[in-house]
Design a protein around this nucleic acid. Structure first.
Length: 422
RNA sequence: GUGGGUGUGGCCUAAGGGUUAAGGCACCUGGUUGUGGCCCAGGAGAAUGUGGGUUCGAGUCCCACCAUCCACCCCA
């Protein structure tokens, strides 16, 4: 009977899964750097109010998914449910508006949401995050999209679906919301209870409703794209023009509205098949009003967050392979006290020389040590016994070829370095 | 927060209400002096999620709780 187990919705990422994590994050970081993004690390917890104001009090994330606690000083803190609010806070707090604009930042790490876990959904999960701050050019929108796009392509994905929409800005959205309200008012008897409530609190979200009865209503609803102001329409048109220029296929989805309040203009998600009902592997968009809401100078911004667990799930489901992590190529077996002392010295010298070594522990028979060498996947097993010691040599066995030769101890390092060296 | 499925060694699986809960994988040790994989032998490892109840008797039936999985909601 286990005394302790991991908290609900968390997971242990075991060694056998690490090749996926290593590969995904390494690819993501490489692509981000290549496009000029610099790394920023922000705290895992922040003032609760930062998220409440940044994400929006009417959102599910803030209403019911935050891990909030009071610390010993009486401050209300919250484990970050996303990166953007913290990154924008850091931009403001560190006066990054005086740097050459825009500032392009990436982050990787855990985020936390109190949800009921299910396939592809966890309470602690990990995101790879990109933000471009201080730039209103739709080229910035394009760039976060293409870096993410290239990440999926580099990883080897096929059949991903890019969903794109524009949700307007404070100038045009209120007008559209009115049009939508009128429309829903006329259909108030036909839509679900949730949507009647949504019309009051968070009108755009009705477009996202999955209820059967609402589907025909949504289909016939006035699309927001017909109600964008000139600026938003122009922005969206240029973004689409660039996407077409690059030949990046996407699906216009006028129902895509996103759960966070801060989005303006561009919103997008990428969906993957085969990972359960939670198909979104990333989501993002533009948030031109966020910096001001957080007390900073007016600063346009656009960003994206990719869920690493979901990427890995989708890779496994699609059978996408990842390179193995390097393990020590040399296993050092020893027999007897004197040989063990020499083995300790030798292992130290090999590692100093940059050669990875696994040294056998304990006093065991050679058979046992050979079995271990095999399981550890060593390319060479170096055997040091009394015999070898007396003659100043080591037996080196090539595990795959099943052949072995003796090498004088003083030649061992160069001999191995030549074959497995750094 | 709601609904459904599932809980037997580390993992997978067996046990028609009736002996000391069986097997496979993995793990460890041997199979002549110091040699891995295949094979063989042996070993260690579980009071069957927890607590009640029904019964002469419960891994098996009932209830509750917990955990987990899937789905709703929402999202990464």
């Amino acid at each position: 009977m286990l005394r302790f187990q991991r908290p609900t919705g968390t997971q242990d990422i075991l060694p056998e899964d690490q090749p996926y994590w290593e590969h995904v994050t390494a690819c993501a970081v490489r692509l981000a750097r290549q496009a000029g993004f610099e790394r920023i690390d922000v705290p895992i917890f922040e003032a609760t109010d930062l998220f409440a104001r940044g994400i929006g009090t009417a959102t599910d994330v803030v209403e019911k998914e935050m891990y909030t606690f009071t610390d010993k000083g009486g401050d209300s803190l919250t484990l970050r449910p996303e990166f953007t609010a913290g990154v924008v806070r850091a931009y403001i707090e560190n006066g990054m508006h005086v740097r050459p604009q825009p500032v392009k930042l990436y982050s990787v790490g855990p985020v936390f949401r109190y949800d009921r876990p299910q396939a592809g959904r966890f309470r602690q999960f990990h995101q790879f995050n990109l933000e471009i701050l201080g730039e209103q050019d739709p080229l910035a929108d394009l760039e976060v999209m293409t870096v993410i796009w290239d990440l999926y392509a580099t990883l080897g994905f096929r059949n991903l679906s890019f969903q794109l929409n524009s949700t307007g800005c404070p100038r045009c959205r209120p007008g559209y919301v009115e049009v939508l309200r009128d429309y829903y008012w006329r259909h108030r008897e036909e839509v679900c209870d949730d949507c009647r409530r949504r019309m009051e609190r968070n009108p755009l979200r009705v477009l996202d409703c999955k209820a059967e009865v609402c589907q025909p209503i949504i289909e016939a609803a006035p699309p927001i794209l017909n109600h964008l102001c000139d600026e938003c329409a122009e922005h969206f048109a240029r973004l689409r023009e660039y996407l077409d220029l690059l030949g990046r296929p996407y699906t216009l989805n006028h129902r895509l509205v996103r759960g966070l309040d801060y989005y303006t203009k561009t919103v997008f998600e990428v969906w993957a098949a085969g990972i359960g009902a939670q198909a979104a592997v990333c989501g993002g968009g533009r948030y031109d009003g966020l910096a001001e809401v957080l007390g900073g100078p007016p600063t346009p911004g656009v960003g994206v967050a990719a869920g690493i667990e979901r990427i890995i799930l989708a890779m496994k489901s699609q059978g996408i392979p990842v390179p193995p992590l390097p393990a020590p190529p040399v296993f050092l077996a020893h027999l007897g006290d004197a040989a063990r002392r020499e083995a300790v010295r030798l292992a130290d010298a090999l590692r100093q020389a940059g050669i990875g070594v696994w040294v056998a522990f304990g006093e065991r028979g050679l058979k046992s040590q050979m079995r271990e060498a095999d399981k550890r996947g060593a390319r060479f097993t170096v055997i040091l016994g009394e015999d070898e010691l007396a003659r100043g040599v080591a037996t080196v066995r090539d595990m795959a070829a099943s052949g072995q030769i003796e090498i004088p101890l003083e030649e061992l390092i160069p001999w191995l370095r030549e074959r497995v060296g750094p």
